[in-house]
């Protein structure tokens, strides 16, 4: 076991994530896993890691680490101000930290989520076949100042590897995403259905469980108690307030609010990377 990094400054939120925890939803245990699956997968690919290697998912920034050994890393996801001993580091390109280096993840500028991925992934004991943190149920330990992240002994990559700019994702503040109609779509007024599919909704904040949006209120034709049923990463539910919530990677497995739609799997990373006050337009998937 090779000590890689010590947390010297704790920022907004960070958690260890892999692809997620599958097979336990019927027992109420969420899938979790990387919110921006695209960046997570590309980052691991840059380092030739296994597709399920554990990484550190960082929201917004504010973190600092001390390198405890020499090792190769990549930053994938949101662009921003990231430094090795004060020298700027770019996303999507492997880089080497040497023992004693200070890695500073100051803040994301384009997008909101950054993956810090070491070659070989972080070394974390799996719980229920996954290394993804799910703090609500005390699954995995969250970082604090002084925490040490471990890795695997690997041969350093000889050359810098990276993703060519034309293949890198763009994280815009105004996005369009594709959705499927939800099981309760028809229960909403015609006006609400039209607004939902035509207007723009503003992201007002959220976390790994759900993102909150505001826009034209979405109302049911008549008051109705919804019988709870399964939900997923991407479920768009509407509580009595009329403001939609998009359930994210730590989504509870079952919900009792009307479901107006579900985000297309391939667009989940776009919504995950929204910054506060960003705008989204929901577009119906064409069959």
């Amino acid at each position: 076991m090779k000590p890689l990094l010590k947390v010297t400054r704790h920022g907004v939120y960070a958690s260890i994530q892999d692809k997620g925890r599958f097979g336990y939803r019927a027992q109420g245990i969420p899938v979790s896993g990387a919110m921006d699956r695209f960046s997570f997968e590309m980052g691991n690919q840059i380092l030739n890691n296994s597709t399920n290697a554990a990484c550190l998912e960082i929201f917004h920034g504010g973190f600092e680490f001390e390198a405890l050994s020499d090792h190769t890393y990549v930053l994938a996801g949101a662009g921003g101000d990231y430094f090795d001993n004060g020298v700027k580091i770019d996303c999507w390109k492997s880089f080497r930290l040497f023992k004693g280096d200070r890695l500073s993840i100051k803040g994301t500028v384009e997008g909101s989520i950054l993956y810090l991925i070491p070659q070989g992934g972080f070394r974390v004991d799996p719980i229920l076949n996954s290394r993804s943190n799910y703090p609500t149920a005390n699954i995995g330990e969250l970082l604090e100042v002084g925490s040490i992240l471990y890795g695997h002994d690997t041969e350093p990559i000889a050359n810098t590897r990276g993703l060519m700019p034309k293949f890198r994702p763009q994280f815009d503040s105004s996005i369009e995403i594709h959705i499927f109609k939800g099981p309760h779509f028809e229960l909403f007024t015609q006006e609400s259905r039209d607004s939902f599919l035509q207007d723009s909704y503003q992201f007002t904040g959220g976390n790994r469980m759900g993102y909150y949006f505001k826009g034209e209120k979405l109302v049911l034709r008549e008051k109705k108690d919804i019988i709870s049923e399964a939900t997923q990463f991407g479920t768009i539910q509407v509580p009595a307030s009329g403001d939609p919530i998009v359930l994210m990677a730590d989504a509870q497995t079952v919900g009792g609010y009307p479901i107006i739609g579900t985000v297309h799997e391939e667009d989940l990373y776009k919504i995950a990377q929204l910054r506060t006050f960003g705008n989204v337009k929901f577009r119906l998937v064409e069959d």
């Binding site: 939803r25 027992q27 109420g28 245990i29 969420p30 149920a137 709870s228 509870q252 497995t253 079952v254």
Partner: peptide, 11 residues
């Protein structure tokens, strides 16, 4: 009838 809302919560 179902388990959910929280890990292991029985309805």
């Amino acid at each position: 009838h179902l388990v959910g809302f929280l890990p292991g919560f029985p309805y």
